[in-house]
Amino acid sequence: MGSILFLLSLFATSIATGALGSMLGLGGGTLLVPILTIFFGVNLHYAMGASLISVIATSSGAAAGFLWLGLSNLRVGLFLAVPTIIGALVGATLVGIVPPRVLELIFGIAIGLAGLITLRPARLRGAATAEADPLAVSFALEGSYYDQALGQHVSYRATAVKRGLGAMFGAGFLSGLLGIGAGAFTVLAMDSVLKLPMKVSTATSNFMIGITAAASAGVFFGRGDVHPLIAGPVAVGVLLGAYLGTRLLVRLTNTAVRRLFLVVVFYLSLSMILRGLGVHLW
């Protein structure tokens, strides 16, 4: 395969991954790392570096829109980004120490878990009537938005904030360690621990994962793990793919998307776990 053909196939794969990631709600980066590693034979560290850059690119685009629409809760995002970034910095620093096979094993398990998380039913309403958490009151971790699907204003306030902070540290740690956005984990924490409505969780998570990925990417860049010839085509491709994916999503049925999701995620998860155990399918 010639150089230009290789880079074009990398670009085309990134478009497909971005489209698939956005349709599945998993983000392009989570799928990209195993695909680059398994099918392109790209070094795991370069794949993770490229993935983080693509996460910042897609997050910047999506977060800009959600902030403009007022769907992202800026205060909640900033507050929760603190433990997430600290976790990400710890995780990103450990990447240089943890052996690649262990990283592949952890990645395989994490992507499988992210898949299971994404398949669970969404919370449409918040927990405005739940018992007030002192931290949520003190830091005004609350808000409201107009939900077109429900045809009414939805008010919400975060609950169990301390547990939420711990969960965010964990999500940030995985993001830094594995070079992914870890949006599935931050959304899970916001939904099941902080009891925020799904739309607010998704929109706020988009803002947060950009900041978190930027913190991790700084460490990766300084270590020489961000290769311009890989990260460039991947970032542009994933961004383009994410845009196409959102357009394509409306034409597909939920069942079709879920079937596709199950096949892709669990195949990649199993492949990475096997690679971590020293078994190469490809």
């Binding site: 395969m1 010639g2 150089s3 230009i4 053909l5 290789f6 880079l7 590693t37 392109f40 034979g41 790209v42 070094n43 370069y46 860049f221 300084g222 270590r223 020489g224 961000v226 290769h227 311009p228 010839l229 890989i230």
Partner: peptide, 21 residues
């Protein structure tokens, strides 16, 4: 870079610097 790497390495080899830190 890895398996398909030889292709990428050739491309990178044409560049004055491969990775900036």
């Amino acid at each position: 870079v890895g398996g398909a790497a030889s292709t990428l390495e050739r491309t990178v080899a044409a560049q004055p610097r491969a990775v900036y830190t």
